[in-house]
Design a protein around this nucleic acid. Structure first.
Length: 178
DNA sequence: CGCTTTTGACCTGCGC
DNA sequence: GCGCAGGTCAAAAGCG
């Protein structure tokens, strides 16, 4: 599968597997790992964005400033919850069916944004992966989804899971502590 | 009846 | 120490 930011027409689900024909789930333009550290890089250069992703997961950055930001952002929670990944994607609805079952546990209005941010936890027992969803401040047709942690169980719908970029980021994620 | 959503309160970290 | 902003909790309501 061609999962790369260089492919602007990358579609989350192949046409014949798209579970929601009305819902064209497209990875819009980048994978961002940190709002102020990496999204700008990703916008400017997808390659740098992916390099940043690698740096983030591997913690191999030699840039002190970035490392501090990484530590500030992920901090101790990295070992606790694992990788944090954010996507910005074009979507009519904020409810993204990514194959997992999510339970909403909070909603918060964010300063400098007219759009509330919604907080979800994976409702599977023992799995405390979180995600937060908010609309793009500048373009309301886009939704920003942030995943935090790595699921300790299979997707309820493995058929779709195998087609999803999850495989790309779980490969980079630190394995859960044994 | 059990699970999910809603929503205000509470907690925590950070900057001043 | 105080205030603000973001994140989480938990009781009540809603829903299938």
């Amino acid at each position: 599968m061609d999962f790369s930011p260089q492919n602007p027409n990358y579609t989350f689900f192949p046409d014949n597997l798209n579970p929601m024909p009305d819902f064209q789930f497209q990875l819009s333009d980048f994978l961002m790992l940190d709002e102020d550290t990496y999204s700008a890089q990703s916008r400017a250069s997808p390659e740098k964005g992916m390099a940043a992703a690698t740096e983030y997961s591997g913690a191999t950055s030699k840039n002190t400033s970035n490392m501090q930001k990484i530590q500030k952002w992920s901090g101790e929670k990295k070992s606790e919850l694992g990788l944090r990944v954010a996507f910005r994607m074009k979507s009519e609805t904020e409810v993204i069916d990514d194959g997992y079952k999510w339970r909403k546990y909070g909603k918060k209005s964010i300063k400098n944004s007219p759009n509330p941010r919604n907080y979800y936890k994976c409702s599977s027992g023992g799995c405390n992966v979180k995600k937060r969803i908010e609309r793009d401040i500048n373009d309301k047709s886009y939704v920003i989804t942030t995943y935090e942690g790595v699921h300790n169980h299979d997707t309820p719908s493995m058929l779709y899971y195998n087609q999803m970029p999850h495989t790309a980021w779980t490969l980079q994620a630190s394995p859960p502590p044994t």
